[in-house]
Design a protein around this nucleic acid. Sequence first.
RNA 1: GCCGGGAUGGCGGAACUGGCAGACGCAGCGGACUUAAAAUCCGCAGGGCUUAAAAGGCCCGUGGGGGUUCGAGUCCCCCUCUCGGCACCA
Length: 858
Amino acid sequence: MSETTKNMTANQPEQRELRYEPQRIEEKWHARWEADSTLYAAEPHDSKRKKYYVLEMLPYPSGALHMGHVRNYAIGDALARFMWMNGCNVLHPMGWDAFGLPAENAAIKNNVPPRQWTLSNVAHMRAQMKRLGFAYDWSREVTTCLPDYYKWNQWFFLKLYEKGLAYRKKSKVNWCPECATVLANEQVVDGCCWRHEETQVEQRELEQWFLRTTNYSEELLAGLDKLEGWPEKVRTMQRNWIGRSEGASVDFKIDGPIGGAGGKITVFTTRIDTIFGATSIQLAPEHPVVAGLIGNDPHLHSKVEDLVREQARAREAGDVGAIEKHGVFTGRYAINPFNQEKIPVWVANYILMDYGTGAIMSVPAHDERDYEFAEKYGLEIRIVILPRRIGGPLAHGQPESPVLPYTEKESLLINSGEFSELSNQEAIEKMTAFAEKNGFGKRTVTYRLKDWGISRQRYWGTPIPMLYCEKCGVVAVPEKDLPVLLPDNVDITLQGGSPLGRIPEFVNATCPRCGGSARRETDTMDTFVDSAWYFYRYTNAQLADRPLDTATVSYWFPIDQYIGGVEHAILHLIYSRFWTKFMRDLGLVRNDEPALRLFTQGMVIKDGAKMSKSKGNVVSPDDMVAQFGADSTRMYSLFATSPDRELDWQEAGVEGVHRFLGRAYRFVMRNAGAVHGSQGRDGARSAELSPKCRQIERKLHQTIKRVTKDFQGRWHFNTSVAAIMEFVNELYGAEDEISFGRFPQELLADVQRRLVLLLAPFAPYLAAELWEVLGATGSLLRHPWPAFDPALAEEDQITYAVQINGKLRSHVVLPAESPEDLVRERVLADEKVRAAIDGKQVAKVIVVPGKLVNVVVR
RNA sequence: GCCGGGAUGGCGGAACUGGCAGACGCAGCGGACUUAAAAUCCGCAGGGCUUAAAAGGCCCGUGGGGGUUCGAGUCCCCCUCUCGGCACCA
């Protein structure tokens, strides 16, 4: 037992002093930071510091923070603090995604106005964040439900409208009965609402406002290749969502007259090389040409209607792929322009109106779906493609048939007129050119991405700034009349369409063009509009006459590091990329992409399941802070696993981190005196140190090296924290050395200062407290990150692991600089090694410098 | 069906370009301190066999099976389970 321990336990008051009490420390600093407005402020144009913009996705103010938030912000805050300490001018803001349906639900349930409910949640959650000690620049706070923010949503909408990028159309839309509103395609998950996972989405026909995201399809796709700092997973998800498909559209003339216009059916195909194998045309049930084709036949009419209904039902069930394929023959024929062949025209339930042209050429031999359909109805299956290995030159008579359907592209054409014997690639080229030259087809690129429907039949959102005048039609609200204020005192129910429509003072307006009476648009915008550009507003949150200042934005953008959940991979992260491109085209910003690097942290789970109220496994951050303190709560969320992985919350683990912080605290409290006696000289001369002290010094430099590398590279903060723990353990091992005065004061002072600096990004409260204990002044955020000396981090002795035939048999300790020959000699001289190779022949000795020796014997 | 993660002690997880598997933490066990407890401090600890016991020694061990290599948790091939995402996209 050490002297210090003896003294400590004998002396009661001192013991109390050495107790780590996070509540006392954290409340003290919490109060100081609240008053210290300069502490976190980022100066916009500090030429001496390099800018760094670190951003966490802004939360919805649902009422209280959950552990997922804490984890997300703990990662961002550690990085922000690290970047400050590395000399950067850091922008680290926070805000509130404050519009949305839960506020309306709360209004109905508790009879509280949405504004009040939302703003009180904001106040509570802001207080929680401050208590957790996140270093946000609160002077830039953005709350999207306030007019000084949503005014600019309306302003952007007018710009989009001006440029033809916002338009109104009647269309089939996804309707969530629970939300009583329309949802965008991105917000439908497995046929259900993204908010109500149990509620099936219905299809309704409504007049809606759309934004032309598809104008940027190609750029949104191409840009992904350059986003190397984004997770491959997210890039893949976006690529699939955009769904670019290269092919050709080909016109098939309809044989004989049809009712109305047309006379042809245009199909889209990616496999024009198989067109000689087309044995029917398949139309989507809602294809406009169908009505003309089937004429007045009541039987066919009802059949087609059945197909329409079936598709709608399947879409609502979210299981479009699972329904059994079937269809109906229209009795009509179309002509294949390549061989003038007459083929039957069918209507089928597996053809979607909203993809491609809503019509396909059916090639049963070379498409799985067409094959299934043709088998069922006995349609002709004609092979026009052979695998290359079977194919070859066709000189040796008829080759064997491939297994059908044969869909591979490594192939060769047969039975295709002048195109026979071409490779699949050549055929696609030549046949497309042939179609273009003869005017019945062209190269076509199709995307799965649709325009973004933003109308919502809800109250708590940004009013769409449009008017409907009896004389002038659709009229935009003039810019000078913005914002169109969202009225208070609205009776909210989930029935009867937009709540705003029931407020005459809101609805009735004057047409700005003719002065006559007009009706206001009563739908509000999708809340994803709010989050599509909020991070630009942070750069100048109070700007009154413009949404943003281009010069300021150009300084800060693109965001250096964006951090959030992967669940936004295709919603928010596509919308905000679209918005950035639109803003760039307006000349407002100069960057093409909002964020250079994206990090998606893993979920927080407990007992193997996602934390949720229904499962009763929710852990409240407030409880954790009350029990163990903010530092322990935050640090545990970084220590439990690496940030990209799922985190299994274990309360005992938080306690463990709390114990560790207590150890660090007590060490500094006991030894801070050394700092005051050392005259502030950093470091001691290594050569004069005792082995134990040299070991501490070495460990110090190794620890700084490891933590620094983790920040710069993989972000495995769990190993950073483990390294700091190891270091503190090492310090405890030297307590006798210290208490007997064998530990140089300079080194002891240096060790403590650097330990506190290492803790600063992870446990900011404790770091601030100990920094003060050590007699230092000024914010840790402005203090340089500790450097390490690679030479001092080097080991001077190395324990070589010795293997015989790959099995560990011994250890040999040698000086670090030992040449290979010496290592070999000493290893072979080792007693255990000699015993193990006794009587056998040494075939080979492999020396891995600094690590291991493997002796191969026979 | 397609794409992408993951599987390591009782638990969370380490092991960076192939080189001592299990760092660090939790739970556990033992000890010190205490009238006692808490707190704290120190130590032990993958499984098995050998041994009176300990030291020591040996064998097995990173989801399963094969392979490459002096050497594989790590690389290659096949398979199982699991978690995400997409899915009649022509």
